[in-house]
Amino acid sequence: MSDAPHIMVVESRCHEDIADELVRGALGELNKAGATHHRVPVPGVLEIPAAVQIAVRSMDVYTARRRYDGYVALGCVIRGETTAYDLICSRAMHGLHDLVLRHTLAVGTGILTVENREQAWVRAAVGGRNRGGQAARACLDMIELKRQFRLYPR
């Protein structure tokens, strides 16, 4: 088996064009590092923690599949006219944080929480802030930290 990390990239498809750019940045970074990856689309940001939890549980039940060494969470929440924005952002981030601590997971978070589409594009653009690439790099860095403490994989 290869030493290259195997990463699950969970992508919210709510804002597809922005999601595609986040994924482009993340995959660029993962490919540069020689990591393998599996993309898992979900409808929205709230479903991201659920997808990671499902993957973690499935590895406990179905051991024939290669384990994920890390997870990259990508999505975008744009503030609207209701309080749903605050709830979605809070619940999604809390859900991911809980999984990280409960299961000692390596997770890179590239979930944009912005006021408008223009802010989202500045943060998502591979030629700009490249939050997708940053999330992938954070995931890889946390995998390396786990290796240092002999908690790798999982």
Rank of each mutant, 00 (worst) to 15 (best):
H38Q: 14
R24W: 10
G127L: 09
N31Q: 14
T63K: 13
R147F: 05
V114C: 09
G34Y: 06
L87N: 02
M59H: 13
L87P: 00
G108N: 03
I48A: 03
L46Q: 10
L27R: 11
A138R: 10
K146C: 05
R65G: 04
R66K: 11
V107R: 04
I78T: 04
A135S: 10
F149E: 07
I143S: 07
D60A: 09
A26H: 09
R65H: 12
P49N: 08
G44V: 01
A120P: 02
I88S: 03
D20A: 15
C139I: 06
Y152N: 13
T82F: 05
C89S: 09
V40A: 12
L27H: 04
S58G: 02
H6Q: 14
A55T: 05
I78M: 06
A51N: 01
M142R: 11
G133L: 07
L74D: 08
V42E: 06
W121F: 10
F149M: 09
I7C: 08
P43Y: 00
L105K: 02
G110P: 03
A55K: 06
M1L: 08
K32A: 15
R91V: 14
M1R: 04
E144S: 04
N116Q: 09
H94Q: 14
A92S: 12
E115G: 05
R57A: 14
A33T: 10
V52P: 00
G75L: 07
M59Y: 09
G128C: 12
V72E: 11
M142G: 01
G70Y: 07
E21W: 08
A92V: 05
R150E: 15
